[in-house]
Amino acid sequence: MTSVQPDPSAEPLIRVDRLCKIYSLESGVNGTVNSQVLYDVNLNINRGEFVAIMGHSGSGKSTLMNLLGCLDTPSSGHYWLAGRDVASLSEDELASVRNHNLGFVFQGFNLLKRMTALDNVATPLLYAGVSRAESRQRAQELLQQTGLGKFSEYQPNQLSGGQQQRVAISRALVNNPQLILADEPTGNLDTQTSGEIMGVFERLNREKGITIVLVTHEDDIAAYASRLVRLKDGRVIHDSKVGP
C-alpha cells in the first residue's frame, strides 16, 4: 500500500485551522485571569498571494502575525506552514523556520543598533551557517538592488526611516524566504516614503512570487494587496479578493 503524498504545490503555504490564543494574566485579587485574543481563526493563504490583514487595535491582528511568524505558539488549533505542523516543531526548529522560510519587516524597523546596514542584512545568513565573506557579499548585492549600495557601511541611526525600512526588507529577503510578514511596515513613515516601500513589496510579490502578509490599519496601504482579511475581536469577519 502506498501512502498518498499531498502535492506540495496544491497545499496552501499557510493553513490555519481553528486557531485560538488565550493570554493568562496574573492578577493579585482573582488569581489568573484568562483573556482570549483569537477565536477559532481559519485562514488559508496560497503561494504568491499578497494579503492585507486589517483591524482596529485589539482586534488580534498582531497576535495572529506573531503566530504566523512562529514567534509565539497558539493555545489551541493548528497551523501548517508549507505543509509542516508548526506545533510539532521544537524551539530550534522554529528558529530555523524563521531563519529560512520567513522574513520579518516591522513597524519600528528593528535593525540591530550600532551595526552597519551590511552587517544587519548579513546576520540571518550567519545564523544559517553561511561564511562571513559570502554573507557580506550577498548582503551587498541585496542592498545594491534596493538602491542602498553606497549606504552599506552606515549605521541605522545615520539612515532615514525609509532607508532603514529598505535595509530591513533586504534583511528579510537575504535567505530567499517564501513568505514575508510585514507588521505595519509604513507606520513610522511619511506618505511618499510609504508609497515607495509598498512599491518594493508589490514588486517582490509580482516579480519574485514571494508571498506577502501585511498588517495595517490604513486603507490606502491595504489597497496594494490583492486580498483583504478583516479581523474584529479576535475573529475573521471579512475575507475577499480586491484590487486589480
Binding site: A95, R98, N99, H100, F104, L112
Partner: peptide
C-alpha cells in the same frame, strides 16, 4: 532584550 528578540526573529536559535 530587544536585540535578543530581533536576533531570534531573524533566525538565532537558543544555542546561538
Amino acid at each position: 532584550t530587544r536585540e535578543i528578540g530581533i536576533r531570534m526573529a531573524i533566525g538565532a536559535n537558543r544555542r546561538a
